[in-house]
Design a binder for these strands. Structure first.
Lengths: 335, 335
DNA sequence: TTGTAAGCGTTATCAA
DNA sequence: TTGATAACGCTTACAA
């Protein structure tokens, strides 16, 4: 049904190999300009498109990249995925997307299926601080981590400056007069959870504020998972403000506060992290640290593409982007 | 690097073709049980995985499906995509996702690239009422439409019962005592926009209410796009309630109302459509018609898989799922 | 039940 | 500058 190199060759009256050379940008200089022109025209008129399975088989490269995320329905990821997709496809690569649901067995299976599909590389958003699988797969395949990293830092990554982001949040609250601030922290197995918690300690200390026993880690990143930790945080003596490790946890904290009869921001200020879509429309509009999700994705794709191009193994590169504070209605001056 | 049929054959001491037969469920019955067992063991120990490019080249099937959506960052779609992904991958198919941004040229390009990748079929969420491209591509490739359909109805589809959904919305408002109800309608090029508008007329008439000049179509589906139409709707005589054609338009309507000094639901009731994530947390929590997005995706994938399996062209099938009303805080009894 | 052989559409190597 | 040829890894008639 679809035209092949042979068909084009027949039309032009030359050998298929020459057609291949003429059509491939990296080899077309080996062919006389006139033949190239004739071939291009014939290919056009037959609307020939190269068969990626044939060339992939021959070259042992699929021009395909696996994208491993926890869950597409978490609003943090669609923007990141778009950044990845747009950049990859402009370079002729096709992303293959999988969702692990934060389950390590599922992840192992899915990474297996991506390797079975012969992906040329991997962009991974599911890293844990300890993550043997990634180290192992990284031996065989170029990998770029996004958002979260592994402890060893042996894999290239694109992240944001958590230190800076949390710092912005704490500074903002302190500026509003708060000093009794708690942290509803992310899961400790996640580098983002861990680093934000550490950053919280540091930021508090730098203001001369006590952060001891003021950090309350959750088990998962969801609105529901926040409840217990949020209640503990709110029970801590005199707490007037909470820095949550992401937007879902902030929303959960606000819900828990409401449940206790506290109103946000009147009685308690809450600040989130990520600035997911619609966070300007929730009640109250959420003050949060905005992460440039689409840029993270684009940057990760670029980094992977450079890895895919380079023959020589380059030094492991870590890209850090800078988040910014978005002030809305969930934070207010201490009364 | 990766083991091939030949490697397995060498280990077992038989011909590669036999290994192929033994490993393929559809042909393994042609091989003696003992050989099958030996082959399986050898394949396992070498961790052989079939090369999809080689088998795809040979069989002219990629076991790959193109998924065409307007924009992944629109919260309506991630759930749908998950439904598609989960169902397809369980059947051994890999989805290739593209975003058209509702631009027809982009769409043509991307569909072209999917065909270049030799996808076996297409799941399309970008249908317009008039959509020549899809009709054309549908000649060559199995296509299933999701959410939106084309006017001719010549392509199989999975949608929800718009008629029923809008009916639920209008009934709810009438039940609350409203009779002056307006519709902030979706774009007319979209079947969902069109059908919901028609359904609105019908539902109003069935209650004996006037719907004349009460429908105000927008140009796009976004929160911002709603502004003008919403202002017109709110300016219409005595309007006390608005049925919006989706959640974004509902949010835009609420914002416009607020801008005019009207409060929702006190002065004006607003009802959305889709029930996107977090619509329970916006201000006010949005009453809306919930669409089973994940089921739509799963159903579409199933339908396409059946098309992919069948040799004989089956009659064009249309699956309709039923939406349900979710009552929250954006609607209230007429005062 | 298994082996043989050809071919899917490319590209890389070698020769002309 | 072009042509011939082989090979990538798999499947499938056909033969044995």
């Amino acid at each position: 049904m679809s035209a092949t190199l042979k068909d084009v060759a027949r039309v032009v009256g030359i050998h298929p190999a020459t057609v291949s050379r003429a059509l491939n940008p990296r080899t077309s200089h080996l062919v006389s300009p006139e033949t190239v022109a004739k071939v291009r025209k014939a290919a056009e008129s037959l609307d020939y498109v190269p068969n990626p399975m044939a060339s992939g088989l021959r070259t042992a490269r699929s021009r395909t990249v696996g994208v491993v995320i926890p869950d597409l329905t978490n609003p943090l990821f669609p923007g990141m995925v778009r950044g990845i997709q747009d950049t990859l496809s402009r370079a002729g690569y096709t992303p293959l997307l999988v969702n692990t649901d934060n389950d390590m067995d599922t992840e192992a299976t899915l990474v297996g299926s991506l390797r079975a599909r012969r992906v040329d590389g991997l962009i991974v958003a599911t890293a844990r601080r300890e993550h043997p699988l990634l180290a192992e797969v990284g031996e065989a395949l170029p990998i770029v981590l996004v958002n979260r990293v592994t402890e060893s830092a042996a894999l290239p990554s694109v992240t944001t400056d958590e230190q800076h982001g949390i710092r912005l949040a704490v500074d903002h609250l302190v500026g509003l007069g708060h000093s009794d601030i708690a942290h509803v922290a992310g899961p400790t197995w996640s580098s983002t959870g861990h680093e934000r918690a550490q950053a919280f300690q540091r930021a508090m200390r730098s203001h001369g504020l006590t952060s001891a026993r003021r950090s309350f880690p959750v088990l998962g990143w969801s609105v529901e998972a926040a409840r217990d930790s949020a209640l503990k945080a709110l029970a801590a003596a005199k707490v007037t403000a909470v820095v949550a490790a992401n937007d879902q946890l902030a929303l959960g904290t606000i819900a828990a506060a409401r449940h206790k009869g506290l109103r946000c921001p009147r009685d308690i200020s809450v600040i989130g992290y990520n600035d997911m879509p619609f966070m300007d429309l929730v009640d109250p509009p959420l003050t949060t640290v905005r992460v440039p999700v689409s840029d993270i994705g684009a940057e990760a794709a670029r980094l992977l593409l450079s890895l895919l191009r380079d023959e020589a193994p380059s030094p492991v590169k870590h890209v850090r982007l800078t988040p910014e504070l978005i002030v809305r209605g969930s934070t207010a001056a201490l009364r």
